[in-house]
Write a protein that binds this DNA or RNA. Structure first.
Length: 434
RNA sequence: GACCCUGUCGUCUAGCCUGGUCUAGGACAAGAGCUUUUCAAGCUCUCGGCACGGGUUCAAAUCCCGUCAGGGUCACCA
């Protein structure tokens, strides 16, 4: 049975790189009917924080990567010590006393050639002559990363270690420890790193890196996962949008690319749009509600959910993030709308008070206030005025929404309602006549 | 600096293992156009790449060598 693990250290939030490692581990476990183990590497007493553990767990759940088992290294110190003692007894390790502090246990590295058969990269050779002796147990009693990693991967029966490229140089050190402890080593697979747009590692300067940031920005978990999946892996057949359950059927760690990939926000936006389009409007509404409350567009417990669902449907196809909705649909919630300077200059700089007034009167006279009737009366009016529809459509949109772009005008009018539409039109009539 | 990894359009990639079907395919971005209502959606088109140099071969993106470039690691951090 295949057993893989994701081993974050709770010294920060779960970021893009970590979640991609988690994804590939989780995916491999699901693809091969194995187990996905979570190991919290909280041996650094100074930097590890319980709130980061919570954050990481929360983000993993949000992404949909449920674990089968979870362990905390801080609760396993006895095990590490036991294995260290073993090496001490066999004289493969020695004790070093530090002034004022306790003693550290250090592994004596012997020069040799270590070969790693990496599942993604193939054979990698190292000469351990240029590896220093390795601290196993620090003078404060906690194990070092490489030692705890080996002991844990063995005792947790990990069969495949799938981790970031940055661990390649740790691998010979760990291989040495497996050898010294006479333990079988797992398979290794090193994933290429994800880089930022300016080259180099993905950093905070590149934009938001914490998964929770993407969540609050309005990205859908499934879109983010799909995008991450495409970094270093391809389903083939020119497919890009692929449901995770589909991916599970065809994924294999051997097919992962070797090259580092650059994180491209634009493509993520596109991917999010793909998922947003197909998502259930009611679900999206639930996700959007908090954003609207935050902007004070609605008050908790005092809004028409059905109405907002209709508005979401209006914008759904063109959103990159859920936050876009809050920005673009603001005119449905605000009493005093903001007029975009460009919209004012382009469409509202000339006097259209006569046209606005006429249209407003036609709307007033409408027996049936529905989209078709609104459009019909509008088309009739422009026909009578002998002008092209677009000559009036754009200024009306600008007056009603304050923007140059938006959903179809007649739908906007319908959902804005007769009264608000008239109000906004007439406000420009007054201004225009001055 | 030492060691290691990687090099196909600006970006993500297909192709590479099993050389010919590749005058290198798709997607994002960008540009142009269309959509008798905008675009931030949709459709169409365009731009753009095998890092470089040597081999091997009838034939190389595909195999070999070198160069260069980018990245990673060298902690009692993980």
């Amino acid at each position: 049975m295949i057993r893989v693990r994701f081993a974050p250290s709770p010294t920060g939030n779960l970021h893009i790189g970590g979640s991609r490692t988690a994804l590939f581990n989780w995916l491999y476990a699901r693809a091969k009917d194995g187990k996905f183990i979570l190991r919290i590497e909280d041996t650094d007493k100074l930097r590890s924080k319980p709130e980061y553990v919570e954050e990481i767990l929360g983000s993993l759940k949000w992404l949909g990567f449920c674990w089968d088992e979870i362990y905390y290294q801080s609760q396993r110190s006895g095990i590490y010590r036991e294995y260290a003692e073993r090496l001490l007894k066999e004289k493969l390790a020695y004790v070093e006393k530090t002034e004022g502090r306790g003693e550290a246990i250090i592994y004596k590295v012997t020069p040799q050639n270590v070969i790693i058969d990496d599942l993604i990269r193939g054979r990698i050779q190292f000469d351990t002559a240029n590896i220093k002796d390795q601290v196993l147990i620090k003078s404060d009693g906690t194990p070092t990363y490489n030692f705890a990693c080996v002991v844990d991967d063995y005792t947790m029966n990990i069969t495949h270690v799938i981790r970031g490229d940055d661990h390649i140089s740790n691998t010979p050190k760990q291989a040495l420890l497996y050898q010294a402890l006479k333990l079988p080593a797992p398979y290794f697979a090193h994933l290429p790193l994800i880089m930022g747009m300016e080259g180099g590692r993905l950093s905070k300067r590149t934009g938001a890196t914490a998964i929770s940031d993407y969540r609050s920005l309005g990205y859908l978990a499934e879109a983010l996962v799909n995008y991450l999946l495409l970094l270093s892996w391809s389903p083939g057949e020119n497919r890009e949008v692929i449901e995770i359950n589909e991916a599970i059927k065809i994924f294999d760690i051997k097919d992962v690319n070797k090259t580092a990939a650059t994180f491209d926000m634009k493509k993520l936006d596109w991917m999010n749009n793909q998922y947003l389009k197909g998502a259930d409007p009611a679900r999206l509404t639930e996700l959007i509600l908090p954003l609207l409350t935050e902007k004070k567009y609605i008050q908790e417990g005092n809004f028409d959910r059905g109405y907002i669902i209709s508005l979401v449907k209006l914008f759904q196809g063109r959103l990159s993030t859920l936050r876009d909705f809050a920005d673009w649909a603001d005119f449905f919630f605000l009493k005093d709308i903001q007029i975009d300077p460009q919209a004012r200059e382009k469409f509202l700089s000339r006097d259209l008070s006569r046209e606005f007034k006429l249209f407003s009167e036609r709307l007033e006279a409408l027996e049936q206030f529905d989209i078709a009737s609104i459009e019909a009366s509008f088309r009739q009016l422009v026909g009578e005025l002998n002008i092209e529809a677009k000559v009036l459509i754009h200024p009306v949109r600008a007056a009603l929404t304050g923007k140059t772009v938006g959903p179809g005008l007649f739908e906007v009018i319908y959902y804005l309602g007769k009264e608000r539409t008239k109000e906004r039109l007439l406000a420009w009539v007054k201004r225009g006549n001055v």
